[in-house]
């Protein structure tokens, strides 16, 4: 194993990639900003003094990915074909999980871009929330997966479990391409099902209505989900049929609430 950014004399140099074959490169990175529960609640409600935090952090992350070569000295300038950021509010751990995904057809990997996107999105979250919570911690910034190029596929999960996974020829990163669907209270008893996992490819459309249709396709008993008095939450927030969903989301269906 050698460090590719050092030459034979141990000096820093930029790797010449002119002769490398162009391949599809993808990388996924994650990080988190830990904060007080009250800060997270303000963030969820859009009540922070600087306005829409997540929308701003998303744009910051995308902009940062495009300018990675200006920040990291020996990094090539890449024409990214896709940069996306996802934010998940976690009220159990009191943090915002940040995930960035980058893709291009090119000669060098995009993991630095994904890591930069996560880092700058986290820094922007900090900046947007610091007026109410200076003690926030940016935590666990790491590469989760990469694929394409000479080194092939790498994933944190596979690396921690066994030897590196065999490289497949699938055109997208496979894990997290599922949806967890929960049924609560009376619906759980009626369907005799507490939890169901759907593959992302099974959805006719990327919204709640698509989840219902995919479930009905699997089993006719789920037709009851089309009833008027079935409520739905996406990642613990109330949702409607038209609410857009993403891979890895958690969907829950339940009857009208009767607490108090």
């Amino acid at each position: 194993m050698t460090l590719t950014h050092l030459n034979a004399r141990g000096e820093a140099h930029m790797v010449d990639v002119a002769d490398k074959q162009e391949t599809r490169r993808e990388a996924r990175a994650r990080g988190a900003v830990r904060m007080q529960a009250s800060t997270l609640a303000l963030l969820a409600d859009g009540d922070l003094p600087k306005g829409d935090v997540l929308a701003t952090a998303r744009i910051a992350g995308i902009q940062a990915a495009k300018r990675t070569h200006e920040l990291i000295p020996l990094c090539h300038a890449l024409a990214l074909s896709k940069v996306s950021l996802e934010f998940t509010l976690d009220t159990e751990e009191n943090c915002v999980h940040v995930e960035a995904f980058c893709r291009l057809n090119g000669r060098t990997g995009v993991e630095m871009e994904a890591l930069t996107a996560v880092s700058v999105a986290c820094l922007t979250l900090y900046d947007m929330c610091k007026a109410v919570d200076r003690g926030m911690i940016i935590d666990g910034v790491r590469l989760e997966q990469k694929r394409g190029g000479r080194s092939g596929e790498w994933s944190r999960q596979a690396a921690s479990e066994t030897s590196p996974a065999a490289t497949g020829e699938k055109d997208a990163i496979s894990p997290a391409k599922t949806l967890k669907v929960q049924f609560l209270a009376e619906l759980r008893e009626r369907f005799e099902t507490a939890e169901y996992t759907l593959a992302w490819e099974q959805l006719p459309s990327a919204d709640i209505a698509g989840v219902k249709l995919a479930l009905i396709e699997r089993d006719g008993k789920f037709k009851a989900l089309l009833g008027q008095r079935v409520l739905c939450a996406r990642n613990e927030a109330m949702s409607q049929d038209g609410t857009a969903i993403s891979p890895g989301d958690e969907i829950a269906f339940f009857p009208p609430v009767t607490g108090g």
């Binding site: 009376e186 339940f254 009857p255 009208p256 609430v257 009767t258 607490g259 108090g260």
Partner: peptide, 18 residues
């Protein structure tokens, strides 16, 4: 708030309606 009540009586159990 997502709470659901199930009542138990001598004549059986049922989920409370909204």
């Amino acid at each position: 708030a997502p709470f659901w009540k199930k009542e138990h009586t001598d004549s059986g159990s049922y989920w409370v309606s909204e």
